[in-house]
Design a protein around this nucleic acid. Structure first.
Lengths: 242, 242
DNA sequence: TCAAGTTGTCTATGATAGTAGACAACTTGA
DNA sequence: TCAAGTTGTCTACTATCATAGACAACTTGA
């Protein structure tokens, strides 16, 4: 296939190759540490020029998924981020412990009112005013999860602005005088990524996600925030320790 | 956003715009028959050049999803023709019920002899003389299907000429004294349009077609005609009712 | 009838995408 | 040591992608 003799789909060839290799890693055809086929061999299997393969591998290397070694080969880097689920769960600490650099960014903040479920989680009344924050978290340049966070608009006025500035849930809570907090109940399910999250997580459509619903409590056990997070399943591994 | 100032994702801008518009149609923000915003307005909402919008609209028009009218605007194309598969299936009635005007036209008629399969379908002997009719059916000006019809040359002499004049299978059968008929077995498969049918259906090459093989029977259950029809999949939706 | 707004077409320019070939630099195993 | 195989880099060429501006052709409503 070439761009010259087929109708263009609007998706670059190198992207198709990169997605193919990434899928191979995600579903275990290539394990962490494995050597990928040579660039020429990949080029032949995809019927594509070697330079196009190199473009695909460069994109994967940029995201830390593979690593090229001159003279030797290209190896699968992608070890899943080990994400322990403890009562004290801080994204930045977990990523830092993995030797990677944590980043956070707010996508959107808005006013909302509590549904019955949200009110129960947060210990508020149905219809109580809430702040809803959509945020994304990354390790190095790789998106790990997107999460929707709700918290009381009465207790945390202007929380969206504060979070946008601090880029950290922990620092945002400190701003309101919350020195420490801990994880309450955590529910884990799985699903398929939707189009919006796919774009945010830089995932192809149809990939599995880990869905985590959790509420953080203050030291007295009073609910502070409740979150609905979607993790790229292929980039993270939850560790539940007794 | 432009290819110049952001890291490329490997997905063309026009494709993102086209996907966005298509999603808008799919989730009902634009209904069938609606006028889309002007090209300039779309360009502004997506922060993109008008030519890029035109590329996106061209791709959608190519697939029959929108239709541009010079000087007026770009409109969401009619929804798929709902085509119920009942024992009494008349193209003209189905199209009329959809508020559109049915048309038929003979492309070609020729003498033929029955293969074993055709003979079995029509209750004739292998090698029996047949009339073969190629015809096209349209709703308003949109081609819906092309079909090849075989019927006995002994029972229906000059059928090709009669069909060319009446432009209707029902009227042609009336000419031979057949007042009513009903649909026998119907087999549905799908395929890719070939060059000949593509030209007749005004379809780009590579588009999917619904292939229907069916035999019509008289009121006593005796086979009258057998047909091999190819429907433009993007213009029709079969409804199977219990 | 006419002005405003719409799609269609043309030219032009620069950045990306993809192919092609050649050679350098390096690793591995015999 | 050496040949084979690997990744890295360079040049060259073509097609596509995206932007920009101008104007033609057409529709609509006042």
């Amino acid at each position: 296939m070439s761009m010259q003799d087929t109708a263009s789909s609007g998706v670059a060839l190198w992207r198709l190759v990169a997605d193919g290799i990434e899928r191979g890693i995600a579903d275990g055809r290539f394990a962490a540490g494995d050597k990928l086929p040579g660039e020429m061999e990949i080029a032949e299997t995809y019927r594509v020029n070697r330079h196009t393969v190199r473009r695909a591998l460069a994109a994967l290397a940029e995201r830390g998924i593979v690593r090229a070694e001159r003279g030797s080969g290209t190896y699968v880097e992608a070890q899943k981020l080990a994400y322990p689920l403890r009562s004290r769960t801080r994204f930045s600490e977990i990523v830092g412990a993995d030797g990677r650099e944590p980043h956070g960014r707010m996508i959107e903040a808005s006013e909302d009112v509590a549904t019955r479920e949200l009110a129960r989680e947060l210990g508020l009344k149905t219809g109580a005013p809430l702040v809803r924050i959509e945020a994304i978290r990354l390790a190095d340049r790789t998106p790990i999860c997107v999460s929707t966070t709700w918290l009381s608009a009465d207790l945390f006025p202007g929380a969206g602005t504060v979070f946008a500035a601090t880029r950290s849930m922990t620092k945002m809570l400190e701003h309101y005088g919350i020195g420490d907090y801990r994880r309450g109940a955590t529910r884990i399910t799985a699903g398929i990524v939707d189009a919006t999250d796919a774009a945010r997580l830089d995932l192809p459509l149809g990939r599995p996600i880990l869905v985590v619903d959790a509420t953080d409590l203050d030291i007295e056990g009073k609910p502070l925030v409740t979150k609905h997070s979607r993790f790229a399943a292929e980039r993270v591994e939850f560790l539940v320790e007794p």
